[in-house]
Amino acid sequence: MRFSTLTASFITLLAGSAVADWKFEIWQSTDCSGGGNYISSSSVPYKGNLSPRQGSFKIITLPSSQHISFYTGSNQSGDISRYGSDLVGGPCVRNAPLSYGVYNN
């Protein structure tokens, strides 16, 4: 049996939709040490609260068409720090957020 190009493309699309498009790891420490927690999804926009306040993060994956905003207050309030795909696989970033949002640029 031979698959058509259209069938193969459809299967690839379905398989890819189950994979998270963005992912970051966040720590309570200010130097990305100790136990971290991964947060990921393929949904955008995506918002959440962090409890307790976190101290640092690393962006694992993030499309260039999206950004992550960290907020000093809960429910996406307070001061905003915005980070893009240029930090993917990059350094530990010291930040003390209580909430976050992932948005399209």
Rank of each mutant, 00 (worst) to 15 (best):
M1Y: 14
M1I: 11
R2G: 14
F3A: 12
S4W: 00
S4R: 05
S4H: 11
T5Y: 07
L6E: 15
T7H: 06
A8S: 09
S9L: 15
S9H: 08
F10T: 13
F10A: 15
T12N: 11
L13N: 03
L13S: 09
G16P: 01
A18R: 10
A18Q: 15
W22H: 02
W22D: 01
E25Y: 02
E25N: 06
E25Q: 06
Q28S: 12
Q28C: 02
S29C: 02
S29F: 14
T30F: 12
D31N: 14
C32Y: 06
S33W: 12
G34H: 10
G35T: 15
N37V: 15
Y38T: 04
S40D: 09
S40T: 01
S40Y: 11
S40G: 05
S40A: 11
S40F: 09
S43P: 00
V44L: 12
P45M: 03
P45D: 06
P45Y: 04
K47A: 11
G48C: 10
G48A: 10
L50A: 02
L50T: 05
L50E: 05
L50S: 01
S51V: 05
S51H: 09
P52F: 08
P52Y: 09
R53M: 14
Q54G: 00
S56Y: 10
S56P: 15
S56W: 07
F57K: 09
K58W: 01
K58G: 01
K58S: 00
I59F: 03
I60R: 10
I60D: 04
I60E: 07
T61S: 12
T61N: 05
L62H: 06
P63G: 04
P63D: 00
P63W: 04
S64F: 13
S64T: 09
S65T: 15
S65R: 04
S65Y: 03
Q66W: 15
H67T: 05
H67Y: 15
I68E: 07
I68K: 01
I68T: 14
S69H: 03
S69W: 06
F70R: 07
T72K: 08
S74G: 14
S74H: 12
S74Q: 10
N75Y: 07
N75W: 11
Q76S: 13
G78V: 14
D79C: 00
D79T: 08
R82K: 13
R82A: 03
Y83N: 06
Y83W: 15
Y83K: 01
G84A: 09
G84V: 05
D86M: 00
L87S: 05
V88H: 01
V88G: 01
V88T: 12
G89Q: 01
G90W: 09
G90H: 03
C92H: 05
N95V: 10
N95G: 02
N95D: 11
P97C: 13
S99V: 07
S99A: 07
S99H: 10
S99T: 00
S99M: 08
Y100M: 05
Y100I: 11
V102E: 02
V102I: 02
V102T: 08
Y103M: 08
N104R: 00
N105R: 15
